[in-house]
Structures are given as structure tokens and as C-alpha cells.
């Protein structure tokens, strides 16, 4: 981990000049926790790191829309800012719930919302939650700006659709009345571990009937993945053992789960079936 420079641009224009669309040895750095791990392991050898910490304006801050319909979250917002934001706690309690078992206090104090997404490690806890909430990312680059659903960031294991000189500037997260969400982190080795599977659910329930929902699987697959077939089984359905079983089977059928050190494919598929059902039941129980 030697032989690189760190630059700290104070404007976006300067940042774009310092980034290089062609050179993977030039990278933006947010909180830097994930990048540091890759550098220490010599998996990544940078020549220039472009720090985003002096960029303010849209890269920082948590703002709620005047009508309460959603949040704008700057990409350099740290996890602990999210965790402790009273507005987020009130309108998106699933975020605080996820934070409780996400890495540790020190990482949450440093890691940034944008860096977490750009890292594209499928084991991260927050990305599936953003997807389940229907969040969109505002991506800026020298060629302009685009707003994409968060799931469109991920292309595979540590792979994103972002160009080398593009930056995630902010997230837009809707707050949908009548919807509720939760994140299930299933670990198989120790209580405090990377998830064997992460399951984020947001749903609009009417009693035990599911009007609409978004189901997202992470960790057991190579990127946070919408479980469209399982959603289709559940959308409009009454919650019951047969429906939940069918949804679990659909989820297993529509995903490719590989064996790894956290469990065999068959076991993780079984966990998916069980926890998908339990998550829906837990959401229903919360509404009662």
C-alpha cells in the first residue's frame, strides 16, 4: 500500500478533471473503509485517490421533502448520520433497524452511503434495503447527470454500471404511506458476521392481504436482486402457509445461489424459503 497520491478537490469540476475515465488506478474515495481493505490486501493498487470529503452541497445532508414524500440523502452522508437522524428514524425505521447489526460503530462513523453502493459487494446490508425502498441514485459525471434506480448500479460481484469518472452524488428515497419494511440478516457462523443471506422486504399490507411489495435478496447472490417471481406470487395474495411456501419456492427457482463458506447452496436455499415466509409474517405482525 504505497506509491499513490491523495487529492481533495473542492468542486465537482475539479473532481472530474482529477478522475480518469480510462485508468482504474484512479478512483474516488468516500469514507474509504472498503477501499482501504482492498488496498491493504493488495487487491487494489491505486495511483491516485480522489477524496470526496471536501465536496459539499449535494454530497452532504439529509433532507426531507416538504410534503414528506421522500428524502434526499447526500452520498457522503455517513451511516451513523443516517442511523441517528430523527427524520430517518421516524419515516424509514428499517434503516435504523439495519444499522444495528451493520459492521460496527467505527465503520458506521466513517463509511458513506455513496461509497457503500459503489463498492458493490453483494454482502453489504444497506444496498438491498435501498432497493426494497425503491431508492434512486443521482449519478454525476463530466458528461452530465442521470438518475437511476439503485438496483441499476449493480452489475455483479464488485461490478457497477458507473463509469470511472462518474460519482454517486445523492440518493432519492421515497417515503410511501402505508408501506412498511424490514431487513433480515441471516448469519450462519457467528452472531456478528457477514450475512449468508440478506433479505429486504417492503410491502403495503391490508390486514393479511399484500397489496404490493418489493422483495430483495443479497449476499447469497452476486448482487442485490429483486425476487420478481416471488413478488408476483405474493402481490394481491392473502398471507398464509401455502402462499408463503409458493413464494419461497419461486424465490429459490428464480435465483442462482452458490455454495460458499457460509453454507451450501441447498442450505441457503432452504434458509431463503424459511426466512422469506418469516419476514412476511413479521411484517404482518407489525401492522396488527
Amino acid at each position: 500500500m504505497t506509491g499513490f497520491e491523495i487529492v481533495e478537490p473542492e468542486s465537482l469540476e475539479e473532481a472530474f478533471r482529477l478522475l480518469d475515465p480510462e485508468d482504474p488506478a484512479v478512483r474516488p474515495i468516500g469514507g474509504g473503509t472498503a477501499l482501504m481493505l482492498m488496498m491493504k490486501a493488495q487487491i487494489y493498487k491505486p495511483e491516485r485517490l480522489v477524496s470526496l470529503r471536501r465536496l459539499d452541497g449535494r454530497f452532504s445532508g439529509i433532507d426531507i421533502a416538504a410534503d414528506g414524500s421522500g428524502f434526499r440523502i447526500g452520498a457522503m452522508t455517513t451511516f451513523s448520520m443516517l442511523e441517528h437522524s430523527p427524520a430517518i428514524r421516524r419515516h424509514l425505521p428499517v434503516i435504523a433497524q439495519t444499522m444495528k447489526t451493520l459492521a460496527n460503530v467505527r465503520v458506521r462513523n466513517v463509511a458513506s452511503v455513496g461509497g457503500n453502493l459503489a463498492h458493490a459487494d453483494p454482502h453489504l446490508d444497506l444496498p438491498p434495503v435501498w432497493v426494497a425502498l425503491g431508492a434512486r441514485a443521482v449519478v454525476v459525471g463530466p458528461r452530465g447527470e442521470r438518475t437511476i434506480p439503485v438496483e441499476a448500479i449493480f452489475e455483479g460481484y464488485y461490478e457497477t454500471s458507473l463509469a470511472n469518472d462518474e460519482l454517486i452524488a445523492e440518493l432519492e428515497v421515497p417515503v410511501r404511506a402505508g408501506w412498511d419494511a424490514l431487513y433480515v440478516k441471516v448469519t450462519t457462523r457467528a452472531a456478528h458476521d457477514w450475512p449468508a443471506l440478506g433479505l429486504a422486504v417492503s410491502a403495503e399490507l391490508e390486514g393479511r392481504r399484500i397489496r404490493d411489495l418489493r422483495l430483495v435478496l443479497s449476499a447469497a447472490v452476486d448482487k442485490p436482486t429483486r425476487l420478481a417471481a416471488a413478488e408476483a406470487v405474493l402481490r394481491g395474495a392473502e398471507i398464509g402457509p401455502a402462499t408463503l411456501r409458493a413464494a419461497g419456492e419461486a424465490a429459490v427457482a428464480e435465483t442462482e445461489i452458490e455454495s460458499d463458506s457460509r453454507g451450501s447452496a441447498a442450505y441457503k436455499q432452504h434458509l431463503l424459503r424459511v426466512h422469506l415466509g418469516r419476514a412476511i409474517e413479521a411484517l404482518a405482525a407489525k401492522r396488527v
Binding site: R189, A190, A191, H192, D193, S261
Partner: peptide, 11 residues
């Protein structure tokens, strides 16, 4: 220690 898990306070 990311993949070889030793006990924490939660255990």
C-alpha cells in the same frame, strides 16, 4: 477475522 469468526459480546 472477517471469515474466521471468534466470539464477540453477542455470543
Amino acid at each position: 477475522l472477517a471469515d474466521y469468526k471468534i466470539p464477540t459480546l453477542l455470543d
